[in-house]
């Protein structure tokens, strides 16, 4: 479902990514771990088609970017560092706008379902500007899931979420996986990766420096393994 081959990105003379290749299959959640500034966000933006790679190729659900970008975008949901919301519009108006861009036939009920699920129904007519950071993040997640995407790219989606909202997100991701979605989750926090991921990669210095299977992720020694791999990548 997600296939990146040899992705590289330079900003001026500074390389951010150096030939990253990865795959995420149907019904699979892959965690992309790494410290701040490792290039996780750049990689996700490239997979979403928001940033053009200097080198390499991206395929989403069999469609090559940027040639088939418009078709690929219909099947993809993306949560980035920013909310991508219009702050002067209400939660309901924001979702209605996004639904109209995707041509959703059941925009009203689907929007209401997600607002209810993320605990925002009681304030669905208030402008987003009046929401706390956590509430904005919940609405951001609702926006990304609105059109039932087959490919989900999440960049630090737990930012600002309280325990209840984080549990709702976990539940939503599990459901999406059961329905066959491919999910790439970029985070510097090991806990969600250990809980949900089938595989994990460490991105450090613009390269994939280490990989772990589900079994390795579940082991008690994983945090130590991660620290060691990160240290080696930074030293090397």
């Amino acid at each position: 479902m997600i296939r990146a081959r040899g992705l590289a990105k330079r900003y001026g003379l500074r390389p951010v990514l150096r030939g990253v290749s990865l795959q995420v299959g149907r019904g699979e959640l892959v965690a992309l771990l790494g410290p701040n500034g490792a290039g996780k966000s750049t990689l996700l933006r490239m997979l979403a088609g928001l940033t053009r790679p200097s080198l390499g190729q991206v395929r989403l659900t069999g469609l090559t970017l940027p040639e088939a970008a418009q078709e690929a975008r219909a099947r993809m949901g993306f949560v980035g560092h920013q909310t991508f919301l219009y702050e002067d519009l209400s939660a309901e108006q924001n979702l209605a706008f996004f639904a109209s861009l995707y041509g959703l036939p059941d925009a009203g009920p689907r929007g209401a379902e997600l607002l209810e699920r993320f605990g925002l129904w009681g304030r669905h007519r208030e402008p987003v500007r009046a929401f706390s950071r956590g509430m904005q993040q919940r609405l951001t997640l609702a926006r990304a899931l609105l059109h039932r995407p087959q490919v989900i790219l999440l960049d630090e989606p737990y930012t600002g979420l309280d325990r209840t909202a984080a549990a709702v997100l976990d539940e939503c991701l599990s459901e999406q996986l059961q329905q066959g979605a491919a999910i790439l989750l970029a985070t510097h926090d090991l806990e969600p990766a250990q809980k949900l991921a089938h595989r994990a990669h460490l991105l450090a210095g613009g390269e994939l420096a280490a990989s772990w299977t589900r079994r390795q992720l579940a082991s008690a020694s994983f945090p130590r393994q991660y620290d060691r791999a990160l240290q080696e990548a930074l030293d090397g």
């Binding site: 979403a48 088609g49 928001l50 418009q70 078709e71 975008r73 219909a74 993809m76 993306f78 980035g80 560092h81 920013q82 909310t83 991508f84 919301l85 219009y86 702050e87 706008f97 996004f98 861009l101 995707y102 926006r143």
Partner: peptide, 14 residues
């Protein structure tokens, strides 16, 4: 503001 334009950049629209 808030990267709002990314919402339609990510959508399957002309």
């Amino acid at each position: 503001d808030g990267g709002a334009m990314n919402s339609w950049l990510l959508a399957p629209v002309d």
